[in-house]
Design a protein around this nucleic acid. Sequence first.
RNA 1: GCCGGAGUGGCGGAAUUGGCAGACGCGCUGGAUUCAAAAUCCAGUGUCCUUUGGGAUGUGUGGGUUCAAGUCCCACCUCCGGCACCA
Length: 806
Amino acid sequence: MMQVNEEYWRNYWEEKNIFKADEKGKKFYVLEMFPYPSGDLHVGHLRNYVIGDVYTRYYKMKGYSILHPMGWDAFGLPAENAAIQRKISPKEWTLENISVSKATFKKLGITYDWDREVTTCLPDYYKWTQWLFIQLYENGLAYRSNAPVNWCPSCMTVLANEQVESGECYRCGTEVTKKDLEQWYFGITKYADRLLEDLEDLPLWPEKVKLMQRNWIGRSYGVTVNFPLKSGNGEIKVYTTRPDTLYGVTFMAVAPENPLLNSLDITPEKRQELDAYIDQARKKSEVERTGTKTEKDGVFTGVYAINPLTGEDVEIFVADYVLATYGTGSVMGVPAHDERDFSFSKKYSIPIKVVINPEDEQLDISSMTNAYIEPGIMTDSGEFTGMISSDAIEKIIEHLEAADKGKRTVNYRLRDWLISRQRYWGAPIPMIHCPDCGMVPEKVENLPILLPDSRKVDYVPKGTSPLGSVDDFVNTKCPKCGKDAKRDTDTMDTFVDSSWYFLRYTDALNSDSIFSKQKADYWLPVDLYIGGVEHAILHLMFSRFITKFLHDIKMISHQEPFKQLFTQGMVMNRINGDLEVMSKSKGNAVPVGPFVEKEGVDVARGTILFIAPPEADLEWKESSVDSIKRFISRIQTVLDAEEGNNDDKEIRYQTHLLVKKVNSDIERFKLNTAIAAMMEYVNFIHKKMESADFSLSKDTKAMFIKVMAPFFPYLAEEYNKLIFGGGSIFEKQWPVHDETALMTDQIEIPVQIKGKLRAVITVGRSATKEEILKLAYSNPNIKKHLQGMTIRKEIYVPGKMVNIII
RNA sequence: GCCGGAGUGGCGGAAUUGGCAGACGCGCUGGAUUCAAAAUCCAGUGUCCUUUGGGAUGUGUGGGUUCAAGUCCCACCUCCGGCACCA
């Protein structure tokens, strides 16, 4: 029986540079999302990387120049937390984890080009993260702003909107609070339209992910309407997508944070009441304020605005369900035609005015229990009365613009990306605060701004940036005027690091530039990007944004980084009876190292690929290896037999069918059925060997070995060496099936009576309809069922089936 | 609440264009081999009926289109995921 020497092949691939990108001819860039280095890789990681490895080996055999790199998303909180607990430096801890993970990758023999390894926490990488920041700053896309931000009291840092899930921190699940802080933002909203529209250019992305991004960007079209104040000469602007309901506006609500409240002419008594409400609102969490379950409340300001279309008075409320950060921070209230406004008006006895009726009904305020939010016929709406409301929308916008009472507006749910973090283990923001010059970017030649040695830093989180405690870091000279100045002490969100790493791989060792345009243009876009769907918004949107920005500053030609996205399913494991995603932090991780040591890499690969289709979640069971172990040993039985020379038509048929099937299964990401097809094939040969003096010819063995190579690379190499004398199987050409081999002389035709299968007949390939029907009618079971029946119709689908209707 | 996706044997899952449902595998049952066991090999395995030829039934539920539906249409149920007052 064949002995597999994994180490030999691992070294062979590496020493002979089999999978080193040679940058010649047609290219294929395979990428798996790089991991956070948490130490031991587990079976969940294995799945992700093995899928990528299959494609790398497959495209290599198809003659492409391959780029398949690996690196480390190495900044971030776990390193700091671990360091605080164990009193070792985040850097040491991280680098140690990387070396453990890397050793496991090497043991697996995944086809990475390690010369291109990137580690985001090392200065040769974050130098360019800082460079990128400066480019964004100089193009007006990085700015500081003082605003209420999401604050995680447990992580002691701010979070981006994208990192808050139902009011909780995406990392630790702690309820997020609001804090007013001056923070750094990236102007991703300037790219909102392009990020939305260019999704059309990504046909090979899952619809689900594109939909999630569309929803997240949340583009809406409407109008900003000016409501003059009743007293004084100010005005309040509101944004609405339903100008057709403007005649029904009876109140308006302003966010507690909206600064225009200060300019309203409010009586001192009212002012006191309002301040109490505002104070209370600010203490509430986002979920308490805007969650669907809580009842909306507010306080009347005592001040009125004027409906610009009707001239009627409109009560102005302060209400904490109004978001200060969306639209104008104020909304108009139309009780009759908005569910939320309806219940608010009931609560505060605000008048209700119907301005849209259903086509066949007149709404009656006294009997209404719900708002009518559908389109309908305009009523009580001045010159627009009688129009279909959906048509009136555009007419009213035109009217408002003509009268200078409003302006057509597009709004987005997407917010600018808050990227500063009050933590130590991240890339320092390369900006300097100068008392004279203000904000000044560090000179590019001074990059990287090194993180100070952790021994000098008090990086235990206190809610302020740990770097602020290091005097020789903070104190510097202004790059512009040379006077004493202070460095910015925040570090960047780790999603900044990972939003451009796929570009660095194309030119990882470049010390003069972030990458060369020529290399990036050759390799981009990533042809196949494999990772979890949990990054559908965060990482994938930020990467698209940065790619577009780099395109705009002429660093790259492409506008989209990832041509095809494949989101693989999660690996689940039972813990105390509950099925949970496998992860180190949950304590249910099955480490890869001991597993492959025991079973071998090929068995580990085959198992994880066979038990479920790559996109489906799967439950990990140790016992799943049994079927693949049996299969591999059966492959050996078949291949170990002496070469025969008695391949017949049937063998040729089966072999070419296998090649065709595996090829198409790989192309459509059905790696589980590709393995099933190989099993069928091997079972077929095995049976044939038992019943006759038969063994495969050398040529047929070659076809099979090539087809299995992307899945079981070690075994394939051993047989390639044994039977064909060496070299790497991956330098050989992927087989092409011969369509003529699939043309059998005989075909089987199922015969149905009234849609029920009654017989299967075997006929010659070229049999005519008449011949087939004749044969069908002579079949005993068909005869039996047709006894005494009248045939009403015969349906014959050429080469497929016969259906007799009685 | 809104928007997606999915429901197929005891289990994981096949069925690529409306054309033989359950490929492949796990498990289970019986047999061969063995002193015995493991491993391996062979046969069977949706459910029910059966004279062993077959027959009935069957892809979440109920309807529909069609010669023919797991696949298409309508309504509903359940589960999973995303968003959750975005005005």
